[in-house]
């Protein structure tokens, strides 16, 4: 039998609280997974283990597949646009242009607003008849736009809101990365006759990419789980146009009281988040190795 020194035992004792906290987290997660294999309905007195029944129901349900497409579409488009705008704004902020100085502190404002407030604010502004957005469009002779009130435009409108809210997050991270670009390399390239575009494309962008991708990991996780902006604007409508997983699970759990089915949707969502995050982390490692 191996006897531990008192010092080692004391160290083990010190990490015990962390282990307990970790176990609590894992318990909640696995309890949620267990619920997805039951017919738990709020109010009903009995809970039965139903195996894969909830998953089979989802597999056969067209709304589940529609929701899958919407969730992936929302995440990919929103994160891509945010990354693109984030790079442009970060590049702008790294210059000494007058607007850059003004907007550098202001750009962070959307990030500090509670997402539900953001949703309610945009819902009011996007009212097709009395919203301020259509008023401004009207000044330029543009016909009123339906924004979140029409099937064909609702998802794009929510993506627009998400982009407005979270582009500053990308900007902040990428700007920090941009500050770390080796100035000597840039100067050497310029002396060798490289123009601004070549310098950006060949030197700055590769340096920025790890930062873009690390920000993307966080945003992919959050976008798959985005709930507040959807519930505060469209609630999944009109006519299922924005019923992403989080909304679908909420409707099943809290409106239809079917917690078993709701947790099954969230468990599928968890897999999507995991796959999305792992792919992005792999890309991050490749980008980082290139820079190294």
């Amino acid at each position: 039998m191996i006897k531990q020194s008192p010092e080692r035992s004391f160290k083990n004792f010190l990490i015990l609280p962390s282990v307990i906290v970790l176990l609590c987290f894992l318990f909640v997660f696995f309890y949620g997974v267990y619920l997805s294999f039951t017919d738990l309905k709020l109010g009903k007195p009995t809970i039965n283990f139903v195996g894969l029944k909830n998953y089979i129901y989802l597999w056969k349900n067209p709304l589940f597949w529609k929701s899958t497409k919407l969730t992936i579409y929302f995440t990919l488009v929103a994160v891509f646009v945010q990354a693109l705008l984030g790079i442009l704004l970060a590049k702008l902020f790294s210059t000494n242009v007058f607007f850059a100085k003004i907007f550098r502190p202001i750009i962070l404002l959307p990030l500090v607003l509670p997402p539900m407030s953001v949703a309610l604010m945009w819902t009011t502004m996007m009212n097709p008849e009395r919203g301020v957005l259509n008023y401004f469009l009207g000044l330029f002779g543009i016909e009123p736009f339906m924004w979140i009130s029409q099937y064909s435009t609702a998802m794009l409108s929510v993506i627009f809101i998400d982009v407005w809210t979270y582009t500053p997050f990308f900007t902040l991270i990428i700007y920090a990365g941009l500050l770390g670009v080796n100035q000597e390399m840039k100067e050497a390239a310029q002396e060798a006759g490289a123009g601004a575009w070549i310098t950006f494309w060949k030197i700055e962008l590769p340096f920025m990419m790890p930062y873009v991708l690390i920000a993307a990991v966080f945003r992919i996780i959050e976008s798959f789980n985005q709930f507040d902006i959807f519930i505060g604007t469209t609630g999944g409508g009109p006519a299922k146009a924005t019923t992403v997983y989080s909304i679908y699970a909420y409707i099943q759990s809290f409106q239809n009281l079917n917690f078993g089915r709701g947790t099954a949707i969230l468990f599928v969502n968890w897999w999507l988040v995991l796959i999305g995050a792992l792919i992005t982390i792999k890309l991050y490692q490749i980008a980082r190795n290139r820079v190294s």
Binding site: N127, P128, E129, P144, S149, Q150, G237, P238
Partner: peptide
Amino acid sequence: AMVKECAAKSWPN
């Protein structure tokens, strides 16, 4: 038909 004629454009919300 009534909704299309009568309601606000923001009706779904």
